[in-house]
């Protein structure tokens, strides 16, 4: 505790609560128009258009999963070709050692296994999950963010961040409640 560092909670952001998805979408668009960039929104359901409204796009997942699938296909094919030509070379049913039609099913399953595993793991990894606690959970409004509340947050790292201005800005857009959230994370 006595590291001589400032360990007092720092501001994390300003959180506004809305009652439905349309208001959230509207408010998010206006917030972005007002010049804020470090925006995040939280909703119980995926809201279409929200990622565009906060100016976020990420399509890395497709390519990474495609790569994983290709790896799986090569691994499956490689395993079969290697075992049936080099280490376990047996003649079965008069079929050639490299029986590509018969190698196809395992190749296919390996492709799918690798892609599905990658899609799941990478989705969580890119999302920074698992992360049991996140500063935004300090907001009271987040208690219902997984049920029926739509939350907008402008984070403190935004260059234009100003708690008071944001609070009145959010109130002006009809937010149900507005909170300033503090965090002790990062020490």
């Amino acid at each position: 505790m006595s590291h001589g560092r400032d360990t007092a909670p720092k501001p994390f952001g300003v959180v506004a609560e809305f009652l439905d998805a349309e208001s959230l979408l509207e408010a998010t668009r206006k917030t972005r128009e007002a010049g804020y960039r470090a925006i995040d929104a939280f909703s119980p359901v995926p809201v279409h258009g929200l990622t565009d409204a906060i100016g976020f796009d990420d399509s890395r997942l497709s390519w990474q999963v495609f790569g994983a699938g290709l790896t799986g296909a090569l691994a499956g094919l490689g395993l079969q070709v290697w075992t049936s030509t080099a280490v376990y070379r047996h003649l079965v049913g008069g079929k050639p050692f490299i029986s590509l039609p018969m190698f196809f099913p395992v190749l296919y399953e390996c492709t799918i296994l690798f892609s599905a595993g990658a899609a799941t793991v990478l989705m969580f990894k890119l999302n920074g999950l698992p992360k049991p606690h996140h500063p935004v959970f300090n907001a009271k409004a987040m208690d219902r963010a997984s049920s029926d509340r739509y939350i907008l947050c402008v984070e403190a790292e935004d260059p234009n961040y100003d708690e008071e201005a944001l609070t009145s800005f959010f109130h002006g857009m009809g937010a149900e409640s507005v909170e300033s959230v503090r965090t002790s994370e990062g020490y």
Partner: peptide
């Protein structure tokens, strides 16, 4: 829940992953 907080960014990748999973489960 892995600390799911319903962030729009998370939903974006989540829906993407769901479609990919669905797309590969169908031929599976």
């Amino acid at each position: 829940s892995m600390g799911w907080r319903g962030s729009a960014k998370h939903w974006h990748r989540y829906e993407h992953a769901s479609i990919i999973l669905a797309g590969i489960s169908t031929p599976l």
